[in-house]
Design a protein around this nucleic acid. Structure first.
Lengths: 232, 232
DNA sequence: CGAAAGGTTGAGTGCTGTCAACGTCCGTGG
DNA sequence: CCACGGACGTTGACAGCACTCAACCTTTCG
């Protein structure tokens, strides 16, 4: 039986605000659930019935237009929180990009627990404020950056986030596996799959990155990447 | 002397969570400040030293690329909260779109007060969650919608928000004043000023809207607008 | 009245999307 | 083991939407 005490995201997730006896209670209302790659945990427009902490894996948050154009509005990693507490509907779908594990709560039980645990709400507030900053920052990319800048910015951000998640002391990793397909990259960057592919090829031919296989990226020239990303 | 008790946003802002004696304390750490049109209250990248409630007027939140391209990432109205509590830097500039009034706090004083008033933090959390939903919804527009859809979506959303702010029972108003110039609309929609102007002209010539003067919009055919916006 | 700011319209270009063909990887089943 | 099929990815040709550059109009304000 898995308990919160042994949870791998214990010290990073919002649960880190809780004492041992509080964790006992939370343990009772949550349950660990596996999510398979491609499985959708919540659907855009649905009643908000569930919230969760990501324990392992990567998931995407996405919305679509009426005619099916998709935009990925967030990518979440272990220790991130998903779902819409204190609200009636979920504004975006949540889908696993790889096999994942989440710690699932019914929204009502979570809401009740959170309302009586200010420290937990504070952690959630901090996390939400950070997510809002991140979302707004992404709006600059979607509204104002060229295809080349978008792809470069994405690769740099991915390197940085994976570095934060691992233990490399904050330095961006220079080699990593993409958790996204080309189509998903396109949906995140507001581009088409062909444009993403062409920009990756261009960066590779310019000697700025290497692509040993379809999922692996090696950043060869970090400075040139910053220039490509429009941070200059 | 103005007190919180008489504040026009008293019942809508996050302060609505507070009792009379608590308001007394808040009154002491905040002060009402006028902001002139065009004046920037906070700068992107600055240390986060101030937060505020909007009392009157409309302000924009914006970020820029290194070479000066601007993206508006949010528009705030009376009762909205601005600034970055519990964080070291402000991620976007805040600028008044018309003469405005805000209730200003130093971040440290506000943080301290919030940390000891869970009900206030709860209100702030709800507000932040709503803003996050709104920002993510806007990402769909920036990433996937055409110029025509963006302009139509913007006008519909503006009509809805002004309806929510007034007392029209939730029905969108059919006639309103834009708080934005064409350039600001372009910066919000991720377009150029010329494209915005052309799309407005197109909607007017199609008989879907009227533009009595440069700042006034009349929605003549709400259904056609929904279609133009790409909503089903 | 003149200047500046804001807005509209036109002509032309180019970036990115569309459509299509082909290539690569990988799991499945003969 | 190999053939096959499907998912994923790359590349090319072409078109079109939105951007750029430019001229001109309207409103505002000193």
């Amino acid at each position: 039986m898995t308990s919160c005490q042994q949870c791998v995201v214990r010290n990073r997730a919002i649960c880190s605000s809780l004492s041992a006896p509080e964790l006992e209670v939370l343990n009772k209302i949550g349950r660990r659930v596996p999510v398979h790659r491609g499985q959708t945990l919540m659907w855009e427009g649905d009643d908000s019935l569930l919230v969760a902490n990501v324990i392992d894996g990567v998931l995407k948050l996405s919305t679509s237009t009426a005619d099916g154009r998709e935009q990925i509005v967030g990518v979440v990693y272990p220790s991130d929180f998903i779902g819409r507490p204190f609200g009636s509907t979920t504004q975006h779908s949540v889908t696993a990009l790889c096999d994942a594990q989440v710690c699932l709560f019914t929204r009502s039980a979570f809401d009740d627990f959170a309302r009586t645990h200010p420290e937990l709400e504070h952690k959630l507030l901090q996390r939400t404020l950070t997510e809002l900053d991140r979302a707004r920052h992404w709006m600059l990319l979607l509204g104002r950056k060229s295809a080349g800048e978008r792809v470069a910015t994405f690769l740099l951000e991915m390197a940085q986030r994976l570095a934060d998640a691992s233990c490399s002391g904050g330095d961006a990793v220079e080699r990593f596996e993409l958790p996204l397909t080309r189509q998903q990259m396109a949906d995140l960057l507001g581009l088409t799959i062909e444009t993403v592919s062409r920009q990756l090829t261009r960066l590779r031919q310019a000697g700025i990155i290497d692509l040993p296989d379809r999922r692996t990226v090696v950043i060869l020239d970090h400075e040139a990447m910053e220039a490509e990303a429009g941070n200059g």
